[in-house]
Amino acid sequence: MTSSLLFNVTTFTYLVSMLIFFTFLATKNKTIGIVASCAAYFGFVAQTVAIVLRWKESYAAGVGHAPLTNLYESVIFFSWTIILIYGIIELKYKYRVVGAFVVPFALLGMAWAQLGLESHIEPLVPALQSNWLLYHVITCFLGYAAFAVACGISIMYLIKESMEGASGDAQAGGIIAQFPSIRVLDDLNYKAIMIGFPLLTLGIITGAAWANYAWGTYWSWDPKETWSLIVWFIYAAFLHARITRGWVGRRAAILSVVGFAATIFCYLGVNLFLSGLHSYGAGR
């Protein structure tokens, strides 16, 4: 069995899981909901095995490194962490329906990686040969994934709120009625960010520590660094918004969506749109 075969299985399973989740939304049938999350977990297990296999394959290819070093590998890892964080939140807080808004993010990642990205295992250039890479990438991506989950929840919040009004007394019918109440969604959003914020903080710190160790500067206002700080500022604003009157609820949900948009820009946009202006650690 090869990792790429298993990645195909993963993508397909996430697709199936998403479709079952949508059916769950439409039918409100509990059993269908359970099947939907089981499908997501099955995909997660397949993906975990595939990632481990790819790690082994890199040793067989003689370059031996953790599968976290190029865009293909990182997108796959990102989608893995999204399902992981979703699983934690689902198991802990028992709101299955959140999956309908989170699994699509993971599916999108897998589909893009498999259809559009170069999957070749490459050797590590000297700058990346460090254990800090592992700590840095894992903490950042877990943080990003928690923000993805928070974004999914905030979208649910905004949809539900616009249907029902902020007080939540007008009950929306149909699919929307399946959503947890807006108070619960607001709280879940906060909980997801409470997981994401410490991880992002650790991610930024490990990145700074690594930069200091490799180049002698812990902070150089490189676009990637700066964008991670922008994301951090936005979520710090979110945390304070939560304890300020007038900022709870709708504005907090919008901040959470904006924060995730900035996260995605930090992860992908910086390389696509801003590269060439600064080259990371290229000496002088």
Binding site: P223, I230, F233, A236, A237, H240, T244, W247, A262, H278
Partner: peptide, 24 residues
């Protein structure tokens, strides 16, 4: 005031973008 904190954090986030678009 916490409103000032929120404004400053959002302000820092927004202005930081400039330096990532214009080469330093």
């Amino acid at each position: 005031s916490l409103k000032l904190s929120i404004s400053l954090l959002i302000g820092l986030a927004a202005t930081s973008i400039i330096g990532t678009v214009i080469p330093q």
